[in-house]
Design a binder for these strands. Structure first.
Length: 180
DNA sequence: TGTGGATCTTGTT
DNA sequence: AACAAGATCCACA
């Protein structure tokens, strides 16, 4: 049983005052394709899959932390990803509203091989009519795959959306369904 | 199958 | 404070 802990990135980290953040970043080779990653204090801060040469949200993300010190660690990002990815207790940075964090917590509890609907999550976080907002919140998640937002599908069984490309969502889901 | 209204959160103005 | 835009859902034709 592997768990994932979501640690809120302190608001103060965003401001360009005081100590500079030491962020490292680099491309990661994953079993589902190339992804862009960023790390802070040994914790994953961003993981986004490439679609062509685009990584959804990367530019916006870096602009938020424009005053940090960015260091490209290149291929060592893959080593980091593999080393930390196989630990049973992983921990990642998140930055979001209380609502978004509750959604991300909820989806993190869905085990591999299972899927839930957006309204299932809305129900779980005691905001039963917020299914649509749940979708938006999942789409705002900066940690692809580790926070398993791909396990949310529509109530009628259709796929729903995926920030990193629908074909990837399909691929991950079928891998998790069969391989487990 | 598809369309329209209901519903909630968020970013922008 | 008001508005538009979402990774939705439900009823109804």
């Amino acid at each position: 049983m592997s768990t994932i802990e979501l640690v809120q990135l302190p608001q103060a980290y965003f401001r360009h005052s005081g100590d500079q953040l030491d962020i490292v970043f680099g491309d990661v080779k994953t079993e589902f394709g190339l992804a862009r990653s960023a790390w802070l204090e040994g914790r994953l801060l961003f993981l986004g899959f490439y679609e062509g040469d685009e990584v959804s949200g990367w530019d916006a993300f870096t602009k938020q932390l424009v005053d940090a010190k960015w260091r490209d660690i290149d291929h060592r990002a893959t080593e980091l990803y593999q080393a930390l990815g196989q630990q049973s207790n992983r921990s990642v940075w998140v930055c979001g509203t209380a609502f978004q964090r509750s959604v991300w917590e909820a989806i993190s509890n869905v085990p591999k091989g299972k899927t839930v609907s957006y309204s299932d999550i809305a129900l779980a976080i005691k905001n039963p009519k917020a299914a649509r907002a749940v979708g938006s919140a999942l789409g705002a998640n900066n940690i692809a795959y580790w926070i398993p937002c791909h396990r949310a599908v529509r109530g009628d069984g259709s796929l729903g959306g995926y920030r990193w490309g629908l074909s990837l969502k399909t691929r991950i889901l079928s891998a998790e369904a069969t391989h487990l």
